Simulated assay, not measured.
Amino acid sequence: MTRLGAVFRPQLPPERLRAVARAADDAGLEELWLWEDCFREGGIATAAAALAWTERVRVGVGLLPVPLRNAALTAMEAASLHRMFPGRASLVLGHGVQDWMAQVGVRAASPLTLLGEHLDALRALLRGERLTVRGRYVTLDDVGLDWPPGETAAAAVLAGATGPRTLRLSGARADGTLLTSATTPDGVRRARQLIDEGRREAGRTEPHPVVVYLLAATGPDAEARLRAELAAEGQESVPDLGVAGDAAAVAGAVRRLVEAGADTVVLQPTGDEPDPEGFVRFTAEEVRPLVP
């Protein structure tokens, strides 16, 4: 079955998260996704708070920029979330926006190498392994977690990817892939092909879920808000990108992404969404029944 979620955008102040998370939980939303955008809100802090305020909704962080993080610290924080909230946390690693990484002095000469090393280390540590690593970016000396997730949770580690090399890397070295809202149905198909190339090269045969953000707007001014956001991102001329309209229109766009290869579709409201609580209720109560 297709999983459906919604994004709490960090353009909202952190104190709004509690009401949105509780609205999502009460409405039966399956997944609530958070961002660690510079220089707004930290992904782990907001995820822990959202999980503590709710009972059932799964909380994803898409994504954690690895240049900002030590692999051991990422593992410690991820393991804590997985043990405290079994089966309810999803974490995604990514390159981060390179201009932002440069602003804080951590831009890597080879973002692909850094992401691959961080993925390998994090996945091994969460499995309970002890590591000694001398990589280009990740260095660990006999490091193991005292409290790995073990059998208490499915501690999958996803990668955020857009370019061909990163998509292949995700297929080879991550447990799933997150695609941005700039991904059309055709883009999902191409991404699946590249991910599968990486999986074959690495000899991986287990399922590899693909999560896709879908920019969506509803309400009287939905079309105008959607077009304004696409224009601000320089994407107004891209066909089949984003959706504005009622639940039937949004569900149709979700289905097109699923038919292209998405396993989970996460509705991303516009940055000026006037009713974030209403948006998560709309996703859960109106769109969800129309999606298989």
Rank of each mutant, 00 (worst) to 15 (best):
M1C: 11
V7C: 11
R9T: 01
P10A: 13
P10K: 12
L12P: 09
P13T: 11
R16I: 07
R16V: 12
R16Q: 13
L17I: 10
L17A: 05
V20H: 05
A21N: 09
A21E: 03
A23S: 09
A24I: 11
A27L: 09
A27M: 02
G28L: 10
W33C: 00
W33R: 08
L34E: 06
L34K: 12
L34G: 06
E41S: 13
E41M: 13
I44L: 14
A47S: 14
A49E: 04
A50T: 14
T54C: 14
R56Q: 02
R56D: 00
R56S: 04
V57G: 00
V57D: 01
R58H: 09
R58G: 15
G60C: 02
G62A: 15
P67R: 07
P67W: 04
N70R: 15
A71T: 09
L73C: 10
L73E: 09
M76S: 05
M76I: 12
M76Y: 08
A79Q: 02
P86E: 12
G87I: 02
R88L: 10
L91F: 08
L93D: 01
V97R: 15
M101Y: 03
A102M: 03
A108N: 04
P111C: 13
L112I: 00
L119D: 05
A121K: 15
A121Q: 02
L122A: 12
A124E: 04
L125W: 07
L125R: 10
R127V: 05
T132L: 01
V133C: 02
G135A: 06
R136Y: 05
R136V: 08
T139K: 15
L140H: 05
L140P: 11
D142V: 12
P149H: 00
G150P: 04
T162M: 08
G163A: 08
T166K: 07
L167I: 08
D175Y: 00
G176F: 01
A182P: 07
T184M: 05
T184Y: 02
D186F: 12
G187S: 07
V188H: 06
R192G: 05
R192F: 00
Q193F: 01
L194S: 02
G198K: 08
R199P: 11
E201C: 10
G203L: 15
T205Q: 01
E206W: 05
P207C: 09
V210R: 04
V211W: 03
L214E: 00
L215W: 04
A217T: 11
A217Y: 01
T218L: 02
A222V: 13
A222Q: 13
A224Y: 02
A228E: 09
L230N: 05
A231M: 07
G234S: 12
G234F: 06
Q235H: 14
S237R: 15
S237C: 11
D240Q: 15
L241R: 14
G242N: 08
V243G: 02
A244D: 03
G245N: 08
A248S: 15
A249Y: 02
A249K: 14
A251P: 13
A253G: 10
V254S: 06
V254I: 10
R255Q: 10
R256I: 01
V258M: 05
A262G: 09
D263Y: 07
V266T: 13
L267Q: 11
G271Y: 04
G271R: 14
D272K: 12
D275R: 10
E277G: 15
F279E: 06
V280P: 10
E285F: 05
V287H: 10
R288S: 09
P289I: 13
L290G: 11
